[in-house]
Design a binder for these strands. Structure first.
Length: 599
DNA sequence: GCGGATCAC
DNA sequence: TATGGTGATCCGC
């Protein structure tokens, strides 16, 4: 596999003619799209940086393989497999299939909202965003336009592309309406960003004598009726599986995984490890190097993974293979916040005075955020990105909590001053070691009792030895507000909802549990298509196909360029100063998480 | 505690 | 025409 590069289908200069036409046409168009993206990226500093990172990763993988070869000598593989099998047995015994977890995901959320507010956009190829697209309508995706794509490349792919500016406050409104509906089915529902949420509908189904699928259908109908959104949903015994399942019949569909151990393991078997939350592009490559592309491969390679436990995280992978993760759904907890920061990108600046001005503005923004959210911090971290895209951070811990612009700027500028001169394209400040300014004295106590009265949200059943879910998600202005007290009101000064991007995060598992994805192996009303980039045969619907191609394009274009390795002129990028000692050999900066090993 | 790296959305 | 912003975690030092 890894049919890395088909003979470069240059011959297929089909142009992106009628994307709207059949799939066959689509495939060839995608090859051309890939070429266009590669062409537009080549020679840019961004590309050079991507190439550098790719080479570093390759070196890291080679070191890992060397270690494997070295350590595998004299190893008793049969014994290692047995040990892994025992761990699997233990994990299996703790598997909990008693909870009905649902992950709902709005389809092309921003684009859907824009269409609702402006019906003229319906059926049109348009993107949402500014210099970089945040979302692309389904029609635009057919031209290769996708989220996170720079505008200038999107325009090359489709010059007539309609661009709509982001309206976060509007998305926030619709998101709130969505969450309000979902909360009726699970008061402890956990929003995961503007357009996603986890629910535990076990109780609701029991109280209303409903089947899970029936219940979810009702939820989806109700959401559509009340918000105009179409959502997709996954139903499974834990969060990882539910998330994977919600993607299965997207858009506007739902999928329930059998609550059966064997069915689940079977489901995971052909699932790409990339679908497992927490396994990104880097770890995907690392795993592929040791022969693990699917969750089923994890079992096959369990001996080697055991040998490389430290680098790969045996437990997390074994959980993925079994399809086991946390099934605890709890609302976000304010106290869980760990940092607050502001960063800004700008066209390269080398003038120190100018940089200081930018930093001052950032300090001001951060002060505003601190006031609005009610946090102060003890450690300030400066982040800067050179015009070459290399990123660095410099931190300083204090003996007091700060949040005023003056403090932020005086300390931040001190950190920056020591690095100058620099030519930068981004500056940022972040506070950590936070103190909750709203949680003073009795107020905190009162809140505690208030919650206790409701019913202990804790579910504490099931297994996960790692319990994740800390819910970092803030969206405090959008979801379930903690009652404000006088101080809050003062701090907020009536500001509605400032900065855009205020979503927060979520689910992020910690170490272990993650879902996996499936790949198109199931049959249904799907079609069999061949991805023009990776040549994989896919049995999926149009959306699944697009998603797959999106992925191949995003990685493929850059990877291809890196391979072709055309050293370009690049020119004199003189950066005032090379940053501090950088990357040493960065040995195995370890991929996975893996908490303790409970072996 | 600090800095780098990875990940999610 | 020049590839985002916010937040979290893990690891090695």
């Amino acid at each position: 596999m890894a049919a890395s590069k088909p003979p470069e289908g240059d011959s297929l200069v089909k142009r992106l003619a009628g994307p709207s036409t059949g799939k066959a046409g689509l495939a060839q168009d995608q090859s051309e799209i890939n070429r266009i993206i590669a062409e537009a990226s080549k020679g840019s500093k961004f590309y050079e940086n991507e190439k550098r990172k790719d080479e570093e990763l390759t070196a890291r993988i080679n070191r890992l393989l060397e270690k494997r070869d070295s350590v595998i000598k004299g190893a008793d593989l049969a014994r290692l497999e047995k040990a892994a099998d025992q761990i699997l047995i233990d994990m299996e015994q703790k598997r909990d299939l008693s909870q009905i977890i649902v992950h709902v995901d709005a389809d092309a959320f921003y684009a859907s909202v824009e269409v609702m507010d402006n019906p003229e956009l319906k059926g049109k190829a348009f993107g949402v965003g500014g210099g970089v697209l945040t979302t692309a309508s389904y029609e635009a995706r057919k031209f290769g336009v996708r989220s996170a794509m720079p505008m200038h490349i999107a325009k090359k792919l489709y010059p007539e592309l309609i661009v709509v500016r982001c309206r976060f406050s509007r998305y926030s409104e619709v998101s709130k309406a969505l969450m309000t509906v979902l909360q009726r089915y699970d008061p402890t529902m956990h929003p995961a960003g503007f357009d996603e949420a986890y629910l535990n509908i076990t109780k609701y189904c029991r109280d209303h004598e409903m089947e899970a699928e029936e219940c979810v259908q009702v939820i989806r109908d109700e959401v559509h009726k009340e918000t105009g959104l179409t959502i997709s949903a996954g139903i499974a015994p834990n969060k990882m599986l539910a998330k994977i399942c919600s993607d299965r019949n997207k858009p506007n569909g739902q999928f329930k995984l059998p609550f059966d151990r064997r069915a689940i393991v079977s489901f995971m078997k052909d699932l790409s490890v990339r679908k497992v939350p927490g396994i990104g592009r880097v770890n995907e490559r690392v795993l592929e190097a040791i022969g693990v592309k699917t969750c089923g491969d994890i079992y096959t390679q369990r001996a080697v993974i055991t040998l490389l436990d430290h680098e790969l995280g045996l437990h997390g992978l074994l959980h993925a293979h079994l399809g086991i993760s946390s099934n605890v759904v709890e609302p976000p907890i304010r106290e869980a916040r760990k940092s607050v920061g502001v960063e800004r990108t700008f066209s390269a600046v080398g003038d120190s005075t100018k940089l200081m001005e930018i930093l001052e503005n950032i300090a001001e923004s951060l002060e505003e955020d601190c006031e609005q959210t009610g946090w102060a911090g003890k450690t300030l971290t400066l982040k800067y990105k050179l015009h070459t895209y290399e990123v660095f951070t410099r931190a300083r811990s204090l003996d007091r909590y700060i949040r005023s612009k003056d403090d932020l700027f005086s300390i931040g500028s001190e950190l920056l001053r020591k690095e100058l001169p620099l030519r930068l394209r981004l500056l940022g400040l972040r506070l950590t070691q936070l103190k909750d300014l709203r949680d003073k004295g009795e107020k905190g106590i009162k809140r505690f009792f208030k919650d206790a009265g409701d019913e202990p949200p804790r579910k504490r059943n099931r297994l996960n030895d790692e319990e994740d879910d800390f819910a970092a998600s803030m969206m405090e202005d959008d979801i379930e507000e903690i009652p404000m007290d006088e101080e809050d009101a003062r701090l907020n000064g009536g500001t509605p909802n400032a900065s855009p991007n205020r979503q927060s995060k979520k689910v992020s598992p910690n170490s272990k549990g993650r879902p996996a994805d499936q790949d198109e192996e199931t049959s249904d009303s799907r079609q069999r298509l061949v991805c023009p980039i990776c040549s994989t045969s896919l049995l999926t619907d149009n959306d699944g196909f697009n998603a797959h191609v999106d992925y191949c394009l995003s990685r493929g274009a850059i990877a291809e360029l890196a391979t072709l390795g055309s050293q370009d002129d690049v020119g004199p990028i003189t950066s005032p100063k090379k940053p501090p000692a950088l990357s040493k050999s960065r040995a195995g900066s370890n991929p996975f998480l893996l908490s303790k090993k409970a072996k």
